[in-house]
Design a protein around this nucleic acid. Structure first.
Lengths: 139, 139
DNA sequence: GTGTTTGCAAAGTGTTTGCAATTTA
DNA sequence: TAAATTGCAAACACTTTGCAAACAC
């Protein structure tokens, strides 16, 4: 069961991604994957690491997030100018965005179905379809 | 016909938006709205203004884009970390994103229909649904 | 040991701000 | 002439980079 062996799981996760299980990467992987799916910014994750007494520089957090993303362990979500979120849920799904707070929330793929999608322009193909449902507090 | 009286049209557009038709705002409005719909960044618009011998500072371009957006004359589109696009098409529609070039392309609302949309979380309502179809060159 | 990874500080990018000078109504 | 707008330069937030020291295999 995933949540019971976080250390071994994180090592395996990194091994599979061909990333050396260094102290920093392990600690960040455990913060990211021990528990429910999350949406974090580099700064959020760095703060969290500091709070749990893990010494990691912010630069390393950025590097690690990008490595994880490139390895398919994370998905980058861009919804606000000048800030990237990283989503631990890499399966097919979409997002609600609370525009007041900036909070992201997953929408399972099954909850949003397309009746029709346009064809990709000639010479290209669809890599991914991202849907952001922007929310406001209701009246 | 819109394209035949750009000056008068731009003045009216600004008047309607309750923005004083200053030299800078008029010039930017004409660059933006004389012709087809476009997707511009602040820097692109600033460069374009310079090329057409319109003296405007980059700060004013930013301010103006935000004022236009707030007035509903433009829609801001965020698809890449650290860069905002402004879309002169403010009607209901979606976007293709060419991930190699960063180029945006409109998808008319009619070309993309939803079979089902999730309910907004309690306490909120849907303000807008943004769909980005990410493209890659095909194999 | 050898190549990889890290931390730091510096640099970079896109954007915003404070404020005096200018322009508009 | 009163209020809005502009330009400049400095400040900002977030992110990336260069390189010596530390670490993993």
């Amino acid at each position: 069961m995933t949540t019971k062996r976080p250390y071994t799981d994180s090592v395996n996760r990194l091994r599979k991604a061909k990333l050396r299980p260094t102290r920093q990467r392990l600690a960040l992987a455990r913060l990211l994957y021990d528990g429910d799916d999350r949406h974090v910014t580099a700064e959020m994750l760095h703060d969290e690491a500091m709070r749990s007494k893990v010494r990691v520089s912010l630069a390393t957090v950025y590097n690690t997030l990008h490595q994880f993303r490139d390895a398919g362990l994370l998905r980058e979500v861009v919804v606000q100018p000048g800030r990237s979120y990283f989503d631990t849920n890499t399966t097919d799904h979409h997002h609600f965005l609370n525009e007041e707070t900036g909070e992201l929330r997953d929408i399972p793929a099954a909850a949003l179905r397309f009746e029709s999608l346009p064809d990709a322009p000639a010479g290209s193909e669809i890599r991914r379809v991202d849907v952001i449902i922007r929310l406001r507090p209701n009246s």
